[in-house]
Design a protein around this nucleic acid. Sequence first.
DNA 1: CTTCATAGCTAGCGTTACTACATATAGGCA
DNA 2: TGCCTATATGTAGTAACGCTAGCTATGAAG
Lengths: 112, 112
Amino acid sequence: MRAEELKGHLDAMLLASLEGGPQHGYAVIEALRQSTGGRLDLPTGTIYPALRRLEQAGLITGSWSVVGGRRRREYRLTPAGDRALSGRRADWLDFSAMVTAALEGGPCPNPA
Amino acid sequence: MRAEELKGHLDAMLLASLEGGPQHGYAVIEALRQSTGGRLDLPTGTIYPALRRLEQAGLITGSWSVVGGRRRREYRLTPAGDRALSGRRADWLDFSAMVTAALEGGPCPNPA
DNA sequence: CTTCATAGCTAGCGTTACTACATATAGGCA
DNA sequence: TGCCTATATGTAGTAACGCTAGCTATGAAG
Protein backbone atom coordinates (compact mmCIF):
# COMPACT_ATOMS: atom_id res chain seq x y z
CA MET A 1 0.00 0.00 0.00
CA ARG A 2 1.28 3.41 -0.74
CA ALA A 3 0.67 6.51 1.22
CA GLU A 4 -0.85 8.63 -1.51
CA GLU A 5 -3.95 9.07 0.51
CA LEU A 6 -2.38 9.73 3.86
CA LYS A 7 -3.04 13.44 3.57
CA GLY A 8 -2.90 14.83 7.04
CA HIS A 9 -2.62 11.48 8.75
CA LEU A 10 1.05 11.05 7.99
CA ASP A 11 1.95 13.64 10.58
CA ALA A 12 0.13 11.71 13.25
CA MET A 13 1.94 8.53 12.32
CA LEU A 14 5.30 10.26 12.41
CA LEU A 15 4.57 11.77 15.81
CA ALA A 16 3.43 8.36 17.03
CA SER A 17 6.64 6.69 15.95
CA LEU A 18 8.61 9.30 17.90
CA GLU A 19 6.55 8.76 20.99
CA GLY A 20 8.62 5.82 22.14
CA GLY A 21 11.80 7.89 22.09
CA PRO A 22 13.91 9.98 19.71
CA GLN A 23 14.57 8.61 16.27
CA HIS A 24 16.12 9.65 13.00
CA GLY A 25 14.30 9.71 9.70
CA TYR A 26 15.65 6.54 8.26
CA ALA A 27 14.71 4.66 11.42
CA VAL A 28 11.21 6.13 11.35
CA ILE A 29 10.68 4.56 7.94
CA GLU A 30 11.68 1.19 9.33
CA ALA A 31 9.60 1.64 12.43
CA LEU A 32 6.51 2.40 10.39
CA ARG A 33 7.21 -0.50 8.09
CA GLN A 34 7.31 -2.77 11.10
CA SER A 35 4.37 -1.35 13.01
CA THR A 36 2.19 -1.66 9.92
CA GLY A 37 3.35 -5.14 9.08
CA GLY A 38 5.20 -3.99 5.99
CA ARG A 39 2.15 -2.36 4.45
CA LEU A 40 3.48 1.15 4.74
CA ASP A 41 6.81 1.74 3.04
CA LEU A 42 7.48 5.43 2.81
CA PRO A 43 9.98 6.90 0.34
CA THR A 44 12.61 9.22 1.77
CA GLY A 45 11.23 12.07 -0.30
CA THR A 46 8.13 11.83 1.81
CA ILE A 47 9.70 11.44 5.23
CA TYR A 48 12.35 14.12 5.27
CA PRO A 49 10.21 17.02 4.11
CA ALA A 50 7.49 15.88 6.50
CA LEU A 51 9.89 15.84 9.45
CA ARG A 52 11.04 19.35 8.55
CA ARG A 53 7.45 20.47 8.42
CA LEU A 54 6.85 19.08 11.87
CA GLU A 55 10.02 20.71 13.13
CA GLN A 56 9.03 24.06 11.71
CA ALA A 57 5.64 23.64 13.32
CA GLY A 58 7.37 23.17 16.66
CA LEU A 59 6.03 19.68 17.20
CA ILE A 60 9.43 18.02 17.11
CA THR A 61 13.03 19.17 17.54
CA GLY A 62 15.95 17.81 15.60
CA SER A 63 19.60 17.58 16.52
CA TRP A 64 22.60 16.29 14.61
CA SER A 65 24.63 13.39 15.88
CA VAL A 66 27.18 11.03 14.41
CA VAL A 67 26.82 7.28 14.77
CA GLY A 68 29.26 4.93 13.09
CA GLY A 69 30.73 7.73 11.05
CA ARG A 70 27.38 8.66 9.59
CA ARG A 71 25.58 11.79 10.53
CA ARG A 72 22.04 11.49 11.78
CA ARG A 73 19.34 13.96 12.52
CA GLU A 74 17.54 12.76 15.58
CA TYR A 75 14.08 14.06 16.25
CA ARG A 76 12.20 14.06 19.49
CA LEU A 77 8.69 15.15 20.44
CA THR A 78 8.24 18.56 22.01
CA PRO A 79 5.53 19.05 24.63
CA ALA A 80 3.47 20.67 21.88
CA GLY A 81 4.11 17.62 19.72
CA ASP A 82 2.94 15.36 22.48
CA ARG A 83 -0.25 17.34 22.82
CA ALA A 84 -0.66 17.40 19.06
CA LEU A 85 -0.32 13.63 18.95
CA SER A 86 -3.17 13.21 21.42
CA GLY A 87 -5.28 15.52 19.32
CA ARG A 88 -4.39 13.72 16.12
CA ARG A 89 -5.27 10.39 17.63
CA ALA A 90 -8.68 11.73 18.62
CA ASP A 91 -9.08 13.28 15.17
CA TRP A 92 -8.30 9.95 13.58
CA LEU A 93 -10.96 8.18 15.60
CA ASP A 94 -13.49 10.82 14.59
CA PHE A 95 -12.40 10.76 11.00
CA SER A 96 -12.39 7.00 10.61
CA ALA A 97 -15.79 6.73 12.25
CA MET A 98 -17.11 9.35 9.87
CA VAL A 99 -15.77 7.69 6.73
CA THR A 100 -16.96 4.30 7.90
CA ALA A 101 -20.41 5.76 8.49
CA ALA A 102 -20.46 7.33 5.05
CA LEU A 103 -19.37 4.12 3.37
CA GLU A 104 -21.96 2.09 5.21
CA GLY A 105 -24.69 4.71 5.27
CA GLY A 106 -24.79 4.94 1.51
CA PRO A 107 -26.62 1.69 0.95
CA CYS A 108 -28.71 0.67 3.95
CA PRO A 109 -31.97 0.82 1.95
CA ASN A 110 -33.39 -1.97 4.12
CA PRO A 111 -33.73 -0.84 7.71
CA ALA A 112 -35.33 -4.24 8.34
CA MET B 1 -15.14 18.39 10.76
CA ARG B 2 -13.93 19.47 7.42
CA ALA B 3 -12.88 17.29 4.58
CA GLU B 4 -9.40 18.68 4.10
CA GLU B 5 -7.94 15.31 4.80
CA LEU B 6 -10.30 13.23 2.77
CA LYS B 7 -7.78 12.89 -0.01
CA GLY B 8 -8.76 9.87 -1.99
CA HIS B 9 -11.52 8.78 0.35
CA LEU B 10 -14.01 11.33 -0.89
CA ASP B 11 -14.55 9.38 -4.09
CA ALA B 12 -15.48 6.29 -2.13
CA MET B 13 -17.97 8.25 -0.08
CA LEU B 14 -19.55 9.75 -3.17
CA LEU B 15 -19.86 6.35 -4.81
CA ALA B 16 -21.37 4.96 -1.62
CA SER B 17 -24.00 7.66 -1.49
CA LEU B 18 -25.00 6.80 -5.06
CA GLU B 19 -25.25 3.12 -4.27
CA GLY B 20 -28.80 3.44 -2.96
CA GLY B 21 -29.99 4.94 -6.22
CA PRO B 22 -29.33 7.89 -8.53
CA GLN B 23 -28.87 11.29 -6.94
CA HIS B 24 -27.91 14.80 -7.89
CA GLY B 25 -25.02 16.70 -6.38
CA TYR B 26 -26.96 18.86 -4.00
CA ALA B 27 -28.72 15.79 -2.64
CA VAL B 28 -25.42 13.98 -2.20
CA ILE B 29 -24.24 16.75 0.08
CA GLU B 30 -27.33 16.33 2.21
CA ALA B 31 -27.07 12.56 2.17
CA LEU B 32 -23.50 12.69 3.41
CA ARG B 33 -24.40 15.23 6.04
CA GLN B 34 -27.06 12.88 7.30
CA SER B 35 -25.14 9.63 7.09
CA THR B 36 -22.27 11.18 9.03
CA GLY B 37 -24.49 12.77 11.62
CA GLY B 38 -23.74 16.27 10.40
CA ARG B 39 -20.00 15.88 10.78
CA LEU B 40 -19.30 16.08 7.08
CA ASP B 41 -20.58 19.20 5.36
CA LEU B 42 -19.05 19.46 1.93
CA PRO B 43 -18.94 22.74 0.03
CA THR B 44 -20.33 22.69 -3.48
CA GLY B 45 -16.90 23.55 -4.84
CA THR B 46 -15.79 20.16 -3.63
CA ILE B 47 -18.74 18.07 -4.76
CA TYR B 48 -19.30 19.19 -8.31
CA PRO B 49 -15.73 18.89 -9.54
CA ALA B 50 -15.49 15.53 -7.79
CA LEU B 51 -18.60 14.23 -9.50
CA ARG B 52 -17.23 15.33 -12.85
CA ARG B 53 -14.00 13.53 -12.10
CA LEU B 54 -15.89 10.35 -11.35
CA GLU B 55 -17.94 10.76 -14.48
CA GLN B 56 -14.85 11.23 -16.60
CA ALA B 57 -13.37 8.16 -14.97
CA GLY B 58 -16.42 6.20 -16.09
CA LEU B 59 -17.50 5.32 -12.57
CA ILE B 60 -20.76 7.25 -12.74
CA THR B 61 -22.95 8.64 -15.51
CA GLY B 62 -24.84 11.89 -15.34
CA SER B 63 -28.01 12.98 -17.06
CA TRP B 64 -29.91 16.23 -16.96
CA SER B 65 -33.45 16.42 -15.73
CA VAL B 66 -35.80 19.14 -14.61
CA VAL B 67 -37.64 18.92 -11.31
CA GLY B 68 -39.81 21.78 -10.11
CA GLY B 69 -38.46 24.08 -12.79
CA ARG B 70 -34.87 23.55 -11.69
CA ARG B 71 -32.42 21.58 -13.69
CA ARG B 72 -30.65 18.73 -12.02
CA ARG B 73 -27.79 16.52 -13.01
CA GLU B 74 -28.55 13.08 -11.76
CA TYR B 75 -25.72 10.65 -11.39
CA ARG B 76 -25.89 6.89 -11.17
CA LEU B 77 -23.25 4.23 -10.64
CA THR B 78 -21.93 2.40 -13.67
CA PRO B 79 -20.96 -1.27 -13.35
CA ALA B 80 -17.36 -0.08 -13.18
CA GLY B 81 -18.35 2.33 -10.43
CA ASP B 82 -19.99 -0.46 -8.52
CA ARG B 83 -16.84 -2.52 -8.76
CA ALA B 84 -14.73 0.49 -7.83
CA LEU B 85 -16.87 1.02 -4.75
CA SER B 86 -16.21 -2.51 -3.57
CA GLY B 87 -12.52 -1.97 -4.10
CA ARG B 88 -12.57 1.36 -2.29
CA ARG B 89 -14.37 -0.15 0.65
CA ALA B 90 -11.72 -2.85 0.90
CA ASP B 91 -9.00 -0.22 0.53
CA TRP B 92 -10.53 1.77 3.33
CA LEU B 93 -10.54 -1.21 5.67
CA ASP B 94 -6.88 -1.85 4.86
CA PHE B 95 -5.98 1.78 5.16
CA SER B 96 -7.76 2.40 8.43
CA ALA B 97 -6.26 -0.73 9.94
CA MET B 98 -2.83 0.41 8.85
CA VAL B 99 -3.14 3.89 10.30
CA THR B 100 -4.60 2.55 13.51
CA ALA B 101 -1.67 0.15 13.78
CA ALA B 102 0.83 2.93 13.19
CA LEU B 103 -0.83 5.17 15.77
CA GLU B 104 -0.87 2.43 18.35
CA GLY B 105 2.40 0.81 17.39
CA GLY B 106 4.36 3.97 17.97
CA PRO B 107 4.46 3.75 21.75
CA CYS B 108 4.33 0.14 22.99
CA PRO B 109 7.75 0.37 24.65
CA ASN B 110 6.55 -2.09 27.29
CA PRO B 111 5.83 -5.48 25.82
CA ALA B 112 5.12 -6.59 29.38
C1' DC C 1 36.87 -0.82 -6.98
C1' DT C 2 32.35 -1.59 -7.22
C1' DT C 3 28.17 -2.37 -5.00
C1' DC C 4 25.06 -2.24 -1.30
C1' DA C 5 22.97 -0.49 3.01
C1' DT C 6 22.78 3.43 5.68
C1' DA C 7 21.67 8.40 6.06
C1' DG C 8 20.31 12.75 4.47
C1' DC C 9 18.52 16.39 1.12
C1' DT C 10 16.04 19.08 -2.82
C1' DA C 11 13.31 20.48 -7.05
C1' DG C 12 9.49 19.85 -9.49
C1' DC C 13 5.12 17.39 -10.42
C1' DG C 14 0.29 15.81 -10.11
C1' DT C 15 -3.67 15.36 -7.43
C1' DT C 16 -6.95 17.01 -4.37
C1' DA C 17 -10.06 19.74 -1.76
C1' DC C 18 -10.94 24.41 -0.65
C1' DT C 19 -12.34 29.49 -1.12
C1' DA C 20 -14.73 32.70 -3.57
C1' DC C 21 -17.41 33.92 -6.98
C1' DA C 22 -21.01 33.55 -10.75
C1' DT C 23 -25.48 31.91 -12.58
C1' DA C 24 -30.43 30.69 -12.40
C1' DT C 25 -35.16 29.34 -10.63
C1' DA C 26 -38.92 28.89 -7.03
C1' DG C 27 -41.15 30.51 -3.08
C1' DG C 28 -42.01 33.50 0.87
C1' DC C 29 -42.56 38.03 2.68
C1' DA C 30 -43.22 42.97 2.87
C1' DT D 1 -42.73 45.17 -7.13
C1' DG D 2 -38.49 44.13 -4.69
C1' DC D 3 -35.78 41.31 -1.76
C1' DC D 4 -34.20 37.35 0.42
C1' DT D 5 -33.71 32.47 1.05
C1' DA D 6 -33.34 27.70 -0.44
C1' DT D 7 -32.45 24.95 -4.27
C1' DA D 8 -29.16 23.71 -7.89
C1' DT D 9 -24.97 23.94 -10.74
C1' DG D 10 -20.65 25.54 -12.12
C1' DT D 11 -15.70 27.75 -12.63
C1' DA D 12 -11.07 29.95 -11.52
C1' DG D 13 -7.51 30.13 -8.69
C1' DT D 14 -5.09 28.60 -4.47
C1' DA D 15 -2.65 25.82 -0.96
C1' DA D 16 -1.17 21.64 0.71
C1' DC D 17 0.49 17.13 0.42
C1' DG D 18 2.96 13.14 -0.92
C1' DC D 19 5.51 11.33 -4.75
C1' DT D 20 9.18 10.79 -8.37
C1' DA D 21 13.70 11.46 -9.56
C1' DG D 22 17.85 12.83 -8.67
C1' DC D 23 21.81 14.18 -5.74
C1' DT D 24 25.61 13.72 -1.86
C1' DA D 25 28.22 10.99 1.46
C1' DT D 26 30.01 7.18 4.56
C1' DG D 27 30.98 2.24 6.00
C1' DA D 28 31.14 -2.53 4.98
C1' DA D 29 31.32 -6.45 1.85
C1' DG D 30 32.75 -8.72 -2.40
